[in-house]
């Protein structure tokens, strides 16, 4: 699954929706639609790689912030096809000025 997923993260035990009696974490894989232009898919882009890494930490420390980041990421992916190439490249490199790429130090 790791090969196919654009974003892979774990919801830790102790999270409000995944309590401690679950024992093992919950693995979440997100597969977004393909883009209509290069790089075609979001997997392995700087934005998603870094986001996956940081989400694991954020979900442990502040679940609400983790949810907000995921929400903004989903909203952003809907807009990507209408963005200019320059803005899209900046965003996917992790310099888009959006919450998912900047506010959390991502």
């Amino acid at each position: 699954m790791i090969k196919a997923a654009d974003l892979l993260f774990e919801v830790p035990v102790g999270h409000p929706v995944w309590p401690a009696e679950m024992h093992e974490p919950l693995t979440v894989a997100v597969i977004f639609p393909y883009l209509s232009r290069r790089p075609w898919e979001l997997r392995k882009t700087g934005l998603l790689v870094e986001l996956g890494r940081k989400l694991c930490i954020v979900l442990k420390e502040d679940p609400d912030v983790g949810r907000d980041i995921l929400l903004e990421l989903c909203l952003l992916t809907r807009q990507m096809d209408t963005m200019s190439v320059r803005d899209l490249c900046r965003l996917l490199r992790g310099h888009g000025g959006h919450k998912v790429s900047s506010e959390q130090g991502l």
């Binding site: 196919a4 997923a5 693995t27 997100v30 597969i31 639609p33």
Partner: peptide
Amino acid sequence: AIEQLRQARMKRQHSTHLLLIPRLMTPET
């Protein structure tokens, strides 16, 4: 399920898929 998801992803490319699995039997996923 993952096998079906991979096929679905190749055939239809405009949907978003979210996969939730408790972390057990990880080598299978």
